[in-house]
Computed example of a mutant assay.
Amino acid sequence: MTSSQPTGLGSGHGFGSGHGFGFGGPAPAPTAARIMDYLSGGRATHPLDERILAELTAAAPGAARAARAQHGFRRLVVARLASRGVRQFLDLGCGLSDPETGRGRPDVHEVAQGVDRSCRFAYVDDDVTAPARARALRGCACAYKHGSGCDSDSGYGSVAVLAADPMSSGILLHPQVASVLDLRRPVAVLMVGLTARIPHQRSAANLVADLAAQTPPGSYLALSQPVSTDAGVREDVSAIVSAATGRAWRVRPPAAVEALLTGLDVRSPGWGDVAAWGAIREPWLPRAETAYAEYGALART
Results as ranks from 00 to 15, higher is better:
2 T>I: 15
4 S>P: 10
5 Q>Y: 05
6 P>M: 09
13 H>M: 11
15 F>A: 04
16 G>V: 02
18 G>W: 01
23 F>L: 14
26 P>R: 06
29 A>M: 11
33 A>R: 01
39 L>D: 06
41 G>D: 08
50 E>P: 06
52 I>V: 15
55 E>V: 06
56 L>V: 01
57 T>C: 13
59 A>T: 05
64 A>N: 09
65 R>C: 08
65 R>Q: 07
65 R>S: 11
67 A>G: 07
72 G>L: 07
74 R>P: 02
75 R>V: 02
75 R>T: 04
78 V>L: 14
79 A>D: 14
79 A>Y: 10
82 A>N: 09
83 S>Q: 11
83 S>N: 09
85 G>N: 11
89 F>A: 06
90 L>N: 06
93 G>H: 03
94 C>H: 00
95 G>Y: 06
99 P>D: 03
102 G>I: 00
108 V>R: 09
110 E>T: 07
111 V>N: 03
113 Q>A: 01
115 V>R: 07
116 D>M: 14
117 R>V: 10
118 S>Y: 09
118 S>T: 15
119 C>P: 10
121 F>V: 08
122 A>P: 05
124 V>Y: 03
131 P>H: 02
132 A>I: 02
136 A>E: 01
138 R>N: 08
138 R>Y: 07
141 A>S: 13
142 C>S: 13
142 C>V: 11
146 H>W: 09
148 S>L: 14
150 C>L: 08
151 D>S: 15
152 S>R: 10
154 S>I: 08
154 S>D: 14
155 G>Q: 11
155 G>F: 06
157 G>Y: 11
160 A>R: 02
162 L>M: 10
163 A>F: 02
168 S>Y: 05
171 I>W: 03
171 I>R: 03
174 H>C: 09
179 S>R: 12
180 V>Q: 03
182 D>M: 12
184 R>D: 15
186 P>D: 07
191 M>E: 06
193 G>W: 02
194 L>E: 04
194 L>D: 02
194 L>T: 08
198 I>Y: 00
200 H>A: 03
200 H>E: 13
200 H>N: 14
208 V>Q: 15
210 D>T: 14
213 A>R: 13
217 P>W: 11
218 G>M: 00
219 S>H: 03
221 L>M: 15
222 A>S: 15
224 S>D: 10
224 S>W: 01
228 S>A: 12
229 T>D: 15
230 D>C: 13
231 A>T: 04
235 E>C: 04
236 D>F: 00
236 D>Y: 00
237 V>T: 09
239 A>D: 11
243 A>I: 02
249 W>Y: 03
250 R>N: 00
250 R>L: 00
252 R>N: 12
255 A>F: 03
257 V>Q: 10
259 A>V: 13
261 L>F: 10
268 S>G: 10
269 P>E: 12
269 P>N: 13
275 A>C: 09
281 R>E: 15
284 W>P: 01
286 P>I: 14
288 A>S: 15
289 E>I: 00
290 T>G: 12
291 A>I: 00
295 Y>S: 05
296 G>R: 04
296 G>E: 06
297 A>S: 12
298 L>T: 01
300 R>F: 07
